[in-house]
Nucleic acid binder design. Structure first.
Length: 153
DNA sequence: GCCAACGTTGGC
DNA sequence: GCCAACGTTGGC
């Protein structure tokens, strides 16, 4: 049984269209600087897990496509790049603090907006809809995954 | 741009 | 280990 996840991306950084245009339609999920989110990638994600690709911090936040986990976790190179906004001077190459997985597009979908998601009882348990939620990566239950996929058909 | 929620930092 | 100050997230 694969796992399921919701992963937030700011479309100004990486949008669903950027993912579609990327080499092999795959991108490294760089820039996670939160331990809970990192631990999900390191400890709980598996190759082939389903990903709801979510656009955040934009005019129309919501789910913009379906993707999947395309690698196991490996060190995020941007933490060692002084020119990167994700640079972490406290992280050492022999003990990388930040990891990420690769994410590969399955298909772009219609935008299932946050506004619409909030109206649907079947989605009401989703972590991303809970008040105060800020985590950029959250687990999704099989039932929630099925409910979202049904809405995107 | 506001601001509520939450994570991180660092003095003690 | 507590907790106040500070920084970040992200919808609105």
């Amino acid at each position: 049984m694969p796992g399921f996840w919701l992963m937030k991306s700011e479309p100004d950084e990486v949008s669903i269209d950027d993912l579609a245009r990327a080499s092999r339609q795959t991108v490294p999920w760089t820039g996670v600087r939160n331990y809970q989110a990192r631990n999900f990638m390191r400890d709980a994600m598996a190759l082939g897990d389903g990903v709801l690709f979510y656009h955040s911090s934009c005019a129309e936040p919501g789910i913009a496509g379906l993707a999947e986990v395309a690698s196991t976790a490996y060190p995020d190179a941007s933490q060692f790049d002084p020119a990167s906004k994700y640079h972490d001077p406290k992280s050492k190459p022999d003990a990388p603090r930040w990891l990420h997985v690769d994410v590969k597009l399955r298909r772009k979908t219609r935008l299932l907006s946050l506004r619409e998601m909030r109206t649907l009882p079947t989605l009401s348990t989703m972590r991303v809809l809970q008040p105060g939620n800020r985590l950029s990566i959250t687990p999704v239950t099989p039932a929630e995954w099925q409910a979202v996929c049904a809405l995107l058909d």
